[in-house]
């Protein structure tokens, strides 16, 4: 978890570049989007950028970005790349996946 701490220190004033991969308007995709916006507004207000990618419209991206599960949230920046799959219903796990949890708990 050493890496975790370093990671979070660096991330204080970087912009989070996030991508949410979905496949059409499935209930899980909608839920994931809602959950994501909620979490980001709470923890990353003003320093995040979410891009929604619908694989049904851009199927080739499934291969390029190695996406199997839908929905998948990818943290492109800051490095390293992280993936969180599922409808993001568990907030703690999402924060953990984005490496935001430790900083949060420091506060």
């Amino acid at each position: 978890m050493e890496n975790n701490n370093k990671d979070s220190e660096v991330s204080v004033d970087v912009i989070f570049q996030l991508r949410l991969y979905i496949a059409g308007q499935s209930p899980n995709s909608i839920k994931a989007f809602e959950n994501l916006i909620m979490i980001c507004d709470e923890h990353l207000k003003g320093r995040y950028d979410v891009e929604i990618i619908d694989l049904i419209q851009n199927p080739s991206l499934a291969k390029e970005d190695q996406i199997l599960a839908i929905p998948t949230l990818v943290r492109k920046l800051p490095e390293p790349l992280r993936k969180i799959i599922g409808n993001l219903s568990n907030k703690e796990r999402v924060l953990d996946g984005l490496n935001l949890k430790s900083r949060n708990s420091c506060k």
Binding site: K63, Q66, L68, A69, G86, R93
Partner: peptide
Amino acid sequence: IDQIIIEKNEIEETGEYNLDGLFIRIGLS
């Protein structure tokens, strides 16, 4: 030939999901 790379340590699971990504990928090929 499509190589599927899954980096287990990059992945966190939370909530429900399906493998539509895989389906789309195979379907496209």
